[in-house]
């Protein structure tokens, strides 16, 4: 909920920013920072999936990193829709709101999917990795 409020506030603030003003460049920089941060988290997720020793730790990397990076990049997209529009009207704001809805669903869906996978692994009795075990 708090995330939603912050996002809606950002978008609402973004609609008031005039094109070419100093605040506009601040918003553009924010979009860039969010995109790059999302990509970095995605990279670390990939490294984690490849390098971690067993199923549970790999899923940890996939579940957390994937959710965070996707959300960061989607927020960047929502802001970019607002800032890159030459003149802000109803359709532009509607697109931004749709992207925020997607953020919400990923926030619910992705951890649930990770949880389902973990429970399936637990039922099929995959042993967690201990120190000194050979990586599988």
């Amino acid at each position: 909920m708090i995330i939603n409020m912050v996002l809606v506030g950002l978008v609402a603030f973004g609609t008031t920013v005039t094109h070419g003003g100093p605040l506009h460049s601040v918003f553009n920089a924010l979009v860039g920072v969010l995109l790059i941060a999302g990509l970095l988290f995605f990279l670390s997720t990939c490294v984690g999936i490849l390098r971690f020793p067993d199923f549970y730790t790999r899923l940890n990397a996939a579940g957390k990193g994937d959710t965070l990076s996707t959300i960061l990049m989607l927020v960047a997209c929502a802001l970019m829709v607002i800032t890159s529009a030459h003149h802000v009207d109803r359709t532009v704001v509607l697109s931004a709101i749709k992207i925020i809805m997607i953020v919400n669903f990923i926030f619910i869906g992705s951890p649930t999917a990770t949880h389902a996978l973990l429970e399936a692994a637990h039922w099929s009795e995959i042993k967690p990795w201990k120190r000194n075990d050979p990586p599988c």
Partner: peptide
């Protein structure tokens, strides 16, 4: 038997 509260609730929400 293999029923998880988390999965059921979030599926019901989505």
């Amino acid at each position: 038997a293999h029923d998880s509260l988390i999965i059921r609730l979030s599926a019901r929400f989505i």
